[in-house]
Nucleic acid binder design. Structure first.
Lengths: 147, 147
DNA sequence: GTACGATCTCAAGCTAACTTGAAGTCAAGG
DNA sequence: CCTTGACTTCAAGTTAGCTTGAGATCGTAC
């Protein structure tokens, strides 16, 4: 790190991703960098934080597009406040909560079905929820994201 | 459905996927079909079940490769028993349990971090777990699947 | 028998999130 | 000054899981 900031390689090493991924994030507008006289990227510590947040958000299951939107909300202010990060975190937390609930429901349904061995039956509620889960078209919609 | 079984279109309609996906699954060896004299696919009800199970497994987050392995375990027996399906279901359930635990931990960490506003701090345990989460390399490994 | 939708095969395209490679430039040590 | 490793851009490749399109055939209803 020189007086301008971290190089791609340094950033990559620090956040544990490949340099190509760092460049990719910049190309995608998720992070920004200044340049040296010789046209090399230099990143401030703030960008390191943004990358960490990006990775965290990905772990939660958000796409880069969604993450970009969230980061855009932070706006052009130089240094996001704690409240800014908190707001984003809250949004992700509810996404997390939804996923957890969905998985738990799936697990519980699986429990019930396995108990009765009905995974082998055409009438299985889990695989053919037409009766109990309502008529929302054919297939195991219950499991595929339909709410 | 004729005496040989369901056509691709019928299968597709019944399980709620596109005919191309049905052909794709057959190409991938996930399901099998007999052929009419005119070379058209015909599927038995068992294949419908397999597709439903495939979709269920995908919803749990398994890849087609993993699913193929699981289905291969069912072997060449013509009709899988309830115990067979149950065994697979159990395996998926533990995968589900793992995911739920991981997401819950992530959510709880996010809770703590948001409470203290530390998402904006470089010393944040969540984003830089180097200290409390052990030294397993740089980056927010805690969030990225490292266990 | 003829029309018309459904099916066939095969190749190519698509999205996400990157990686890889080529050809060339920058920066720091000796 | 020279070497060497890190950096540059840009195009193309990768993986998963399908979809789309072209051109040809099947099957069924009238």
């Amino acid at each position: 790190m020189d007086e301008l900031g971290y190089s791609v390689g340094e950033v990559a090493a620090r956040v544990g991703i490949a340099p190509s991924a760092v460049r990719f994030y910049e190309d995608e507008g998720l992070i920004s960098a200044s340049r040296t006289e010789g046209n090399q990227r230099r990143f401030t510590p703030v960008e390191l934080r943004r990358i960490s947040v990006i990775r965290a958000a990905q772990a939660v299951g958000l796409t880069l597009g969604e993450i970009r939107s969230a980061l855009d909300v932070l706006g052009r202010r130089r240094t996001p406040t704690a409240a800014d990060w908190a707001r984003m975190g809250e949004a992700w937390k509810s996404s997390l909560d939804e996923r957890i609930v969905a998985l738990e429901r799936l697990r519980d349904d699986l429990d019930g079905c396995i108990g009765c061995g009905c995974l082998s039956l055409e009438s299985c509620t889990l695989l053919n929820p037409g009766d109990s889960a309502g008529r929302r078209g054919p297939g195991p919609r219950f499991l595929l994201g339909d709410r």
